[in-house]
Amino acid sequence: MSRIHVNTTVNGDAVDFLCEPDETLLDALRNRLGLTGSKEGCGTGDCGACSVTLDGRLVCSCLVLAAEAEGRAVGTIEGMAEGEALHPLQQKFIEHAALQCGVCTPGILVAAKALLEKNPDPTETEVRYWLAGNLCRCTGYDKIIRAVMDTAADLRRA
C-alpha cells in the first residue's frame, strides 16, 4: 500500500501530510500533525473524546479516515482559543469546575461549541442529548451541563 498525500485545513492553517489508506483522522492529527488535544478513549465512536468538526459538522475523528480530510476544513480543540483569549466555553468550564481529570474535556468543548452554533438557546434536555455521545466518568455531568447552559446565556446577552 502506498501512502496518500492529503491537503487539508486544520484550525484555519493549510497543512499536508502523508497517511496510510486505513489511517484514522484522529491518528493523523495526533501522530502526524502533533495535535494531541483530541483523545482516543475507545476508537469506536462511543466516547466522543476525539470529537472534531469537519466542514463545521461534529464528528468522531476516530471514525473518519485521514484521507477524507482532503480539501476540507478540520476544527480541533487546539483552534478553540484565540491566542491567550479562551473561548467563553473554555472559561466557563474552568469557572464551573466542569472538569476533573480533563481527558474528555477537549471533545466535550468541541461538541458543546458545535451545539451552541446550531442552537444558541438549548434547554437542559437538549444539552444532555447533544452531549450524550461524549462520555465523562468523573463529574456526573452536572457541572458540565451548567457550564454549557451558562455560556449559552452569556453569549445570548453579548
Binding site: 495526533r30 495535535l35 494531541t36 488535544g37 483530541s38 483523545k39 482516543e40 480541533t76 480543540i77 487546539e78 478553540m80 482559543a81 479562551l86 473554555q90 468550564f93 474552568i94 469557572e95 469546575a97 472538569l99 480533563g102 481527558v103 474535556t105 477537549p106 468543548l109
Partner: peptide, 21 residues
C-alpha cells in the same frame, strides 16, 4: 473558597499531556 484550578487552562486547551500524548 473556590479558586480556579491551576491545571484548568491546560486541560481546556488540549495542552495537558496524558499517557498517550
Amino acid at each position: 473558597t473556590r479558586p480556579l484550578r491551576p491545571d484548568g487552562v491546560d486541560k481546556v486547551t488540549g495542552k495537558a499531556l496524558y499517557g498517550a500524548d
